[in-house]
Design a protein around this nucleic acid. Structure first.
Lengths: 176, 176
DNA sequence: CTGGTATTTCAGTTTTAACAGAAACTACGA
DNA sequence: TCGTAGTTTCTGTTAAAACTGAAATACCAG
């Protein structure tokens, strides 16, 4: 890690902790941070070297990042080794991560809530109140998902415009 | 846990796993789930009993939930024991959680990115590319934070309206 | 004060996730 | 089809987080 500048170290360490708080393995997040600030794609060996983690650990972490779709393999002429590069556009990157989390976590949660509500609707069910609460939670997720699907279809430039419209929101929706 | 209906168990277990994936302790999330579907506030003893976790564990988890501001203590006449209840409105609840995460995680990240960028601007700094990347990441977070602050000021009813406007988004921002 | 009840803190244990190193596998050129 | 460079998988170890039970503390009523 001492082969990196102090600023690079600071960023990578912070990003690692950040990942942890959002349920991402620390090393995975660190490797992502490293690739994010690397001007050129790096191979696994270089990553080991820069972050002092075992080869195997780098290997699994890279696979993880590829599963998240924010890191891709690149090949260069005359070098058999895989090189890895991160997406560089933050807007795209977060969109991709949100897509993935929605698919992995939100959609199954909605399904679970539907199941639960359905079960409590069977005759003789003892959990009135539970049904009511879970139904409201389901509605929340469904509404949010629908909204996200819409936003997700916008081109990045559209999202940026939309996010920057800022104070117009108050005028349009501030009245409750 | 067997004192709960199957549906309740299913929900609580799922919510626990969900929490885990988002960096929340499993038991903390389970207790939250339990309180969320409980028609009445529960005391610590009852929670131990329903979820089979140690008294002390319940105690710290409840404190955690109070720190997140989604669980509150309630007192009832003629009972010295603390009773706990969860927020019940999903919209409010998620707003509160996002507020907290922004404060705990996003704001410090922006500060860190500012620091890093400032350092790389010092004369003789060796990390041109790093500066460029971190500056763009900082801009992303700043823009998103600003937007969130706006949304956050809307009353819940305004947020719901806003989220439900759905397909109008395409027309307004779809052109890039 | 004193005794009883409720809650929190803390030290030690258990459980889970992360990790390293070795072995296995893969792809490819000679 | 052998050798080599590269990558992944697997197994045992280590480190971190979660958890328990006991002890300490707080709170209140008499």
């Amino acid at each position: 890690m001492s082969k990196l500048t102090p600023v690079q170290q600071k960023f990578i360490l912070h990003w690692g902790e950040m990942g942890l708080k959002w349920g991402i393995n620390r090393t995975v997040a660190q490797i992502h941070a490293l690739l994010f600030i690397s001007p050129k794609p790096l191979n696994a060996e270089q990553i080991c070297d820069l972050l002092d983690v075992a080869r195997s650990n780098v290997s699994t972490s890279l696979r993880e990042l590829q599963n998240w779709k924010i890191v891709k393999v690149v090949h260069t002429m005359g070098d058999r080794r895989d090189h890895f590069e991160s997406m560089k556009d933050a807007w795209e990157m977060f969109r991709v991560v949100l897509d993935e989390r929605k698919m992995r976590e939100i959609d199954p949660t909605v399904a679970m809530l539907r199941d639960c509500v359905a079960e409590t609707e069977k005759p003789g069910a003892k959990d009135e109140y539970t049904r009511e609460r879970l139904a409201s939670l389901r509605d929340f997720f469904v509404t949010m998902s629908g909204w996200y699907d819409q936003v997700d279809q916008l081109p990045t430039s559209g999202i940026i415009k939309f996010v920057k419209m800022g104070d117009k929101l108050r005028k349009l929706f501030g009245g409750g």
